[in-house]
Design a protein around this nucleic acid. Structure first.
Length: 303
DNA sequence: GGTGCGATCGCCT
DNA sequence: GGCGATCGCACCG
């Protein structure tokens, strides 16, 4: 459909951005001339010099910020531990965007063929996966989107953040997201702002330049526990096969996607997985080999 | 509501 | 030169 094609192009080219994304980025190659390169001209990364002077301020006022200890755990364990935690993005103007993590995926590296670091393969792109736990790994996908991961314990292991529940700054998130959508599109509902790995990067203005930064110490992005978590209600976690890796055979079947059951912001609900991991039983839902991989870090036993 | 499809370009072989 | 951890839109029921 030619008309439709034109619309798709227009969408991808949508340049009247927000201040979103990408200066200081590896994406800033000069020869690029497509829609994305046009997009890049309008966007900047916010790691401005003034942040250094304000840094101590952040730490004084962040009693709930999670530090290095939290990230130093095996990949699957960390992927589940992320659920319910709050990702915070502080913008250059001081406004803060907050979202509760409701969906993650574990990529163990090593024998995990679906991981960018499969076989211990280390490249310029995936270097962050091999850095200390808590290091952010941002990579571009399909030419036009970004995904955000956080490295965990284990060589080359990282957790992909897939969905957030917007808690603070929804109007700004909506603005950032709208920048890439067709003019005149219906307004996004709150639950649609961050319900996908690239959507959350857009909504929180996570740019490529966040790659290799430390979630435990960075002044512009960090993780918090909820100030007032409900102590009586344990999280009901569903484990399901990961999304979009069908070509990786048996590795595609590993139930290493984790999400909060019934949460409206989850990107894709897997009813079969929900039937299998009945309520209250989900924390032990890993098969024997997976449990081993959890204790033996990324040393996954083949089934 | 669900499904099918094509955009786009960095990365890797 | 081929592929991809996605997305938004059009279409259908």
């Amino acid at each position: 459909m030619a008309g439709r094609k034109r619309k798709m192009l227009a969408l991808a080219a949508a340049p009247e951005q927000s201040e979103s994304v990408i200066k200081h980025s590896n994406l800033t190659d000069q020869k690029a001339t497509g829609p994305l390169s046009k997009l890049k001209e309008h966007i900047t990364c916010e790691n401005a010099p003034h942040l250094e002077t304000e840094q101590s301020h952040y730490f004084r006022n962040l009693p709930h910020r999670l530090g290095e200890d939290f990230f130093s755990q095996p990949c699957i364990s960390l992927a589940k531990a992320f659920l319910g935690k709050v990702l915070v993005r502080r913008r250059a103007d001081g406004t803060e965007l907050r979202g509760r993590i409701v969906e993650t995926e574990a990529y163990l590296g090593g024998e995990d063929k679906a991981s960018h670091s499969a076989g211990g393969k280390r490249t310029e792109r995936n270097t962050a996966m091999f850095m200390k736990p808590g290091t952010i790994y941002v990579y571009p996908i399909y030419g036009i989107y970004l995904c955000m991961n956080v490295s965990s314990e284990g060589e080359g292991a990282a957790v992909l953040l897939r969905s957030l529940e917007p808690l603070q700054g929804q109007p700004i998130m909506r603005e950032l997201r709208a920048a890439r959508r067709k003019e005149g599109s219906s307004q996004l509902k709150d639950k649609e702002l961050c319900n996908g790995p690239s959507k959350l990067c857009q909504a929180l203005n996570i740019a490529r330049c966040f790659d290799r930064r430390d979630l435990a110490s960075d002044p512009e992005v960090w993780l918090e526990t909820e100030p007032d978590p409900s102590p009586t209600k344990p999280l009901d976690i569903v484990s399901a096969p990961r999304i979009g890796i069908e070509s990786h055979g048996e590795w595609a079947k590993k139930p290493w996607r984790f999400y909060l059951r019934g949460h409206p912001c989850v990107s894709i609900v897997n009813k079969e997985a929900e039937r299998q991991s009945l309520s209250g039983n989900v924390m032990n839902d890993l098969g024997p080999s997976d449990v081993q991989s959890e204790t033996g870090q990324h040393n996954v036993k083949k089934t």
